[in-house]
C-alpha cells in the first residue's frame, strides 16, 4: 500500500495543474492578505485571518476537480489497466488513491493555515490573537475541511460510477453551492418533515454545528447524531466507490 501511495503522490506532484494550484493558492491568500491590510474597512484583517484568507475556495474547487478525474483520467490515458495487472488488488488500488487525496487535502489545509498565521503577523500585526479569534480560525478551517471531505467522498463515488469526469465535477460544485444557497430552504423543509433531517446534505452542516451548538435547532440532529450520520454517509459513499470500481471492466 505504501508503494501505491508513493506512486500516487509522484503522479499528483508531477502534474502541472497541481504545481499551478499550489502557486495560485499562495497567491490567492497573499492577495486577500494585502487587500485586508490596504482596505481594512472593506475587509477587516480579523475576518480575513479567521476565514483563512479565503484559501478554502481554491482548495475546494481543485480537490473536487482532481477527485472527479480520479478514475476517468486513468481510463483516458489507458493507464488503468497497467495499475491493475500488478500484485495489488482492485481494492488496494482505489484505496491508495483515496488515501493519497485525503492526505493531500489535510496537508494543503495545514499549509494554508500556517501561511495564514504567517500572513497575519506580516499584514495584520495589530490584530490581537485572542482565544476567540483562534477558535474562529480553527473552527472555520475545520468546517471547510469537513464540508470538503463530505463532498469529495460523493464526487469520488460519482467519478467511479460514470465514465465522464464532467458529470462528477458538476455535481461536486453544484453540491457545494446547493448547501450554501439552499440550506435555509432545507431547514424549512426539515421543520415540516422531520424525516428529512437524515438526508446527506444536512450532514454537511456538521462543521457549523461544531462551531455553534445552537445549530441543532435547525438541523434537528444532536451533535452525536450529526457526527455519526456524517461518518456513515462518507463511509457509504466510499464503500460504494470501491464496489463500483471493482465492477468496472478494463
Amino acid at each position: 500500500m505504501i508503494t501505491l501511495i508513493r506512486q500516487e503522490f509522484y503522479k499528483l506532484f508531477k502534474q502541472r495543474s497541481t504545481q499551478l494550484f499550489l502557486i495560485v493558492l499562495f497567491a490567492f491568500q497573499l492577495f486577500f492578505a494585502v487587500i485586508s491590510m490596504k482596505y481594512p474597512k472593506f475587509y477587516s484583517p480579523k475576518d480575513a485571518f479567521t476565514s483563512n484568507y479565503f484559501a478554502s475556495a481554491p482548495i475546494l474547487f481543485f480537490m473536487i476537480a482532481i477527485c472527479s478525474m480520479l478514475i476517468t483520467k486513468e481510463r483516458q490515458f489507458g493507464t488503468l489497466r497497467s495499475l491493475l495487472y500488478r500484485k495489488f488488488s482492485y481494492v488496494q488500488v482505489i484505496l491508495s488513491k483515496i488515501i493519497t487525496l485525503v492526505l493531500f487535502i489535510v496537508s494543503t489545509v495545514i499549509c494554508s493555515s500556517v501561511i495564514s498565521v504567517i500572513f497575519k503577523f506580516i499584514f495584520a500585526n495589530k490584530v490581537d490573537l485572542t482565544e476567540k479569534i483562534w477558535k474562529d480560525f480553527l473552527f472555520t478551517n475545520l468546517n471547510d475541511f469537513l464540508t470538503l471531505l463530505f463532498l469529495i467522498s460523493l464526487v469520488i463515488l460519482l467519478g467511479t460510477l460514470v465514465n465522464s469526469s464532467n458529470l462528477a465535477l458538476t455535481i461536486g460544485i453544484i453540491g457545494y453551492f446547493v448547501l450554501n444557497v439552499f440550506n435555509q430552504l432545507l431547514f424549512a423543509a426539515i421543520a415540516k418533515f422531520e424525516w428529512l433531517k437524515w438526508n446527506p446534505l444536512n450532514m454537511m452542516n456538521l462543521g457549523v454545528q461544531i462551531q455553534s451548538s445552537s445549530y441543532h435547532q435547525l438541523t434537528h440532529l444532536t451533535m452525536t447524531q450529526i457526527s455519526i450520520g456524517y461518518i456513515v454517509y462518507v463511509l457509504i459513499f466510499l464503500c460504494l466507490a470501491v464496489y463500483s470500481f471493482r465492477k468496472k471492466s478494463v
Partner: peptide, 15 residues
Amino acid sequence: PLESVGALIEYPGLY
C-alpha cells in the same frame, strides 16, 4: 502471484 509478472496488453498506457 502477479508480483513476478510484467505485461503489455494491447497498447502501452502512459501518463
